[in-house]
Design a binder for these strands. Sequence first.
DNA 1: GATGAAAACTTGACACTGCCAAGATAGCCG
DNA 2: CGGCTATCTTGGCAGTGTCAAGTTTTCATC
Lengths: 191, 191
Amino acid sequence: MTDVRPYHHGDLRQAVLAAAVAAITEAGTAGVSLRELARRAGVSHAAPAHHFGDKAGLLTAVAAEGYDLLANALTDAQQRTGSFREVGVAYVRFAIEHRAHFEVMYRPDLYHADDPVVRAARGRAADALYSGIGSLPDGRAGQDVRLVGVAAWSLVHGFATLWLTGALPAGLGDDPETAARAVAGILFRAP
Amino acid sequence: MTDVRPYHHGDLRQAVLAAAVAAITEAGTAGVSLRELARRAGVSHAAPAHHFGDKAGLLTAVAAEGYDLLANALTDAQQRTGSFREVGVAYVRFAIEHRAHFEVMYRPDLYHADDPVVRAARGRAADALYSGIGSLPDGRAGQDVRLVGVAAWSLVHGFATLWLTGALPAGLGDDPETAARAVAGILFRAP
DNA sequence: GATGAAAACTTGACACTGCCAAGATAGCCG
DNA sequence: CGGCTATCTTGGCAGTGTCAAGTTTTCATC
């Protein structure tokens, strides 16, 4: 069912997916249309729908890819640094580097949020995020683990979305990663 | 024909604005159309555009109203409780109670974000949010005030958006205000 | 290798959208 | 009363998502 060799285009599904991510990066989620993606790929206007069912199906694929990338980024940060704070920084870095994926992921009204593939990828990302709480240095680890996790997730998620919308005040510099590390240090003292 | 409907609606601008908020609450920002709002108000399909210019103009009005409501909610919480944490809780409460406004406010690609009316209202909300940092109990107040403010804002903003998208894990109860108070307590010890 | 089924894609249509230009109507002020 | 302006209507255009039906290619099986 996957890519054996489609005939005219080669790999339309992948091409449309990549074009969608590029279009969302440039013009936001509202600036993407199936017909425009079809034009970019050089196929007829109804070809994309054949692979994704409908527009929500296309965005479902984007979301699934995003949760996969996020899970990888978080586990990588955890294994590389062993620091829960750096997992949070990796979350922010992912949001900025993969803005299109991030914007879709957290707008469940745009896609089929209970798609099994999405659910699985989201679960992996959640596990990766929570896995580092135990490695916290001192007092924090004694608190309710669930609350600490929600607080940390809220902090980095809020920071990322506020940064992306340009809502944050000036004076934080222009490197989101450095700023995120400083802000995360308010919640958890550096190790 | 003996038409009961007068040619002039009387207060179309306000009617469309209210209908837009209701429609966004029900179906999200993507589920609102000028023509549908016109139908609900019983006017022709092009009437709303006369008051708002275009769709972005309508959402600009929604955003401005939202920032006004937010500024009021935050200053009220600050004056009533004197607690910075309760200002944060009020932020979350606003996001849940005025979901439609909140969703529009933080999607600047949908409206004219540099509209002077919006800028003024946003400034009032920011002032209200930051005004309570000085009243923090202990050590926190000695840190970089800007960083503490950004951390607090990020925390409550992230919590609100995650709650609204249904991304948070179960077990936090069904009252967002109580849950927000607990999560905010991780960042700032209760007074 | 031929053949039939299935997958990939095209074509055409429908209802809907935002936006624009031009006309009709109402209230208001001299 | 007569103009004037804001308000609203009408009609049209280009664009969209989605559906149904047809066409072309690939693949599996005989």
